[in-house]
Design a protein around this nucleic acid. Structure first.
Length: 268
DNA sequence: TTGTGTTTTATTGCCTCC
DNA sequence: GGAGGCAATAAAACACAA
């Protein structure tokens, strides 16, 4: 790659013909604007002193084809301008270039690279946000699975109780009851007295509502029968709701910063 | 001092928009 | 078709551990 072409002559890129050796960046062009900035310079990453930038001997001594970093003051002003607007209109580019003692092309390149850096950072932030959201979802899922197991065992034990009652009430004395079906239990609501169904007082009792599905098996498919309970059991339901609400908050209500990023990338 | 990883400056090529 | 944006990349400058 001909990266040194910038220092020796016009660049073929984008038809820009004003790119020459950096030594052309002398204060005469800016009418003292850049000089005043240099006077306030605190630390320079490359030049040993503010005056070096305007010292012809400096450029004679240094290899002219070397890249030179922008001064802290130049970077500071560019950063301020970038904060205002991360895109560069031609007028602003020209003004900035004059003020900084840089070629307009250099200002444009700086903005281009700055946008690239910003995007990288933003991607990192977005990744962190997604990851934390995922971790939260995962932990909520685990707790829901535990709750699920607990409720299932409650249902099983209550079913056993009910079946025991039913058998002792209806079967002739002396008969040995059939072993309970723990995996899949079919319940005939008509055979269960209302007071029995409501007597337990536990959350699990409500599962056996008359309007609820009557197939209770060991898989997760009975979940829907739990959902209606949430309307009648505030304390438990709030926990369940908040689990999901908390998880989805970051994605549905992005932070200001995140919102900016979405806008910046043209997302709705 | 030197090797190595990171950051910054700049180029190239492609794409989109007017 | 030219101007400007972006992704990919090169290479110099810089930071830092050994």
């Amino acid at each position: 790659m001909e990266s040194n072409s910038f220092f020796f002559g016009p660049s073929a890129s984008h038809g820009n013909n004003n790119m020459f050796f950096l030594g052309n960046l002398n204060p005469v062009v800016q009418g003292g604007g850049a000089r005043s900035m240099e006077e306030t310079s605190k630390r320079r990453p490359f030049f040993s002193s503010p005056e070096d930038l305007y010292d012809d001997d400096y450029y004679d001594d240094q290899l002219p084809e070397k890249k030179r970093r922008l001064t802290t003051e130049q970077v500071h002003l560019l950063e301020k301008s970038f904060e205002t607007e991360n895109k560069l209109e031609p007028d602003r580019k020209t003004q900035l270039a004059k003020k900084l003692g840089l070629q307009p092309r250099q200002v444009a390149v700086w903005f281009q690279n700055r946008r690239a850096r910003w995007k990288t950072k933003q991607l990192e932030r977005d990744y962190d946000l997604l990851k934390s959201t995922y971790d939260q979802l995962l932990s909520n899922y685990d707790s829901i699975v535990k709750d699920n197991d607990k409720l299932r065992s409650e249902v099983t034990s209550l079913t056993e109780k009910l079946q025991g009652k039913e058998e002792t009430a209806n079967e002739p004395p002396g008969l040995v009851p059939e072993p309970n079906q723990l995996d899949t239990v079919y319940i005939n609501p008509a055979a269960i007295k209302t007071e029995d169904r409501l007597s337990s007082g536990s959350v699990g009792s409500a599962v056996l509502d008359e309007d609820a599905p009557q197939l209770l098996d060991s898989c997760d498919s009975y979940f829907p029968s739990i959902v209606p309970i949430q309307d009648t059991n505030a304390s438990d339901n709030d926990n369940d709701r908040s689990c999901f609400a908390d998880v989805f908050v970051p994605t549905t209500s992005p932070s200001h910063d995140h919102g900016e990023s979405l806008a910046f990338w043209g997302w709705p």
